[in-house]
Design a protein around this nucleic acid. Structure first.
Lengths: 198, 198
DNA sequence: ATAAAAAACTAATAAGCGTTAGTTTTGTAA
DNA sequence: TTACAAAACTAACGCTTATTAGTTTTTTAT
């Protein structure tokens, strides 16, 4: 008999989650089989169930971890007493760092969350929408204070979030450009524009 | 007996492809079943094979159509005798229009192409990389001519492409903002930046 | 009206899926 | 060493998948 283990062995479970994130990113959640995952871990498929509850639970673990990371950082940034420009810049830099450091998990949370089983799907969607609203709020305040141009804050938020998401396809060149230069480059693009000012 | 039909009935096949694009976008390619697709079309699953060769062929048809559309437009833009800024602006506007008008197909081509069967997968990847290179070339020339700031053209290209991709999650608000205003807003973001210039 | 072709149907296939059951091996602590 | 639990294994289940075969209905053209 094999029940889900209690406490100590979080180690193997973490390995499984990490390998799952890598597979879910490259092959997609639905196209990834538990046998593939087991191969990557180095065990047989049924042995996975000594450590995890099921395929959906793996996706949930990945998405929750990422969502909590971003939400926590956003709260920190919100409580800062600095300009809204600086806040947005800090958020952009955090997104870039996360994208480069935790590519698999962030990618999966961005693209595979629609396969979350209920009620995790609804929870995740709510958390995501809440995150977007709080970003819009920062942008709106920046617009009111004339820090930003009079642009649509929702469009601006989408532009920022998805621009950073473009780094998903950047990892293959990771070695060529340092994280710092990359951050500076993207901040320049998004905040100051790429056109030479006369 | 039922062989794949020759010429006339492109109509029903087009319906199938359109419905497939919608399903592939919302449910994902792997998670979409031929029975779901058949339901959407209004026939039984095996009847689909009177019109198409298989599931993979559907994905291929969608991706090829989108890729050809963008490649054709890029060629047109390249041959224009205008500034590189204007070229980039035109490309951005085309991407936005395509994203709003052909959301399903463009989304699928952007996110599900990794499930293409060979040799379509390799072909698509090559076409995509070629497209990116040609965009970078425009940006590089613009940088050399001091139209653009001295930024990394590859990062700029990724930022542009993925920023536009953010409109994937925008369709729910389509009615609120006109295409034109949306285009202008995004062009402003990406080219001129969102910070108020003093 | 009739014949041929196109496109629908029902039935069934083999393969693969996530998962469970039951058993054996491995690791750990007394 | 012995005992217990954790974690591996093999075997198999029930279900779903894309797809094929064979047949019947519908459409089209003469």
């Amino acid at each position: 008999m094999a029940k889900i283990k209690p406490g100590k062995n979080a180690s193997k479970k973490d390995v499984i989650i990490t390998k799952a994130a890598a597979l879910f990113r490259t092959r997609g959640f639905s196209a990834t089989t538990m046998r593939e995952l087991a191969d990557a871990v180095g065990i047989e498929a049924p042995s996975l169930y000594n450590h995890i509850g099921g395929k959906g639970e793996l996706l949930q673990a990945i998405c929750l971890k990422v969502a909590n990371g971003f939400t926590t950082q956003l709260t920190t940034t919100e409580n800062l007493s600095c300009s809204n420009i600086d806040k947005i810049e800090q958020i952009i830099r955090f997104h870039i760092t996360m994208m480069l450091d935790e590519l698999d998990e962030v990618f999966v949370a961005n693209h595979e969350w629609k396969h979350l089983p209920e009620p995790f799907f609804s929870n995740f969607l709510n958390q995501r929408r809440n995150y977007e609203k709080r970003l819009v709020a920062i942008l709106e305040e920046g617009i009111k204070k004339k820090e930003f141009k009079n642009i649509n804050p929702y469009v601006a938020m989408l532009t920022l979030l998805s621009a950073v998401r473009g780094l998903e396809s950047f990892h293959r060149h990771k070695k060529n450009i340092s994280t710092r230069i990359l951050q500076d480059d993207m901040v320049t693009h998004l905040l100051k524009g790429m056109i030479m000012h006369r």
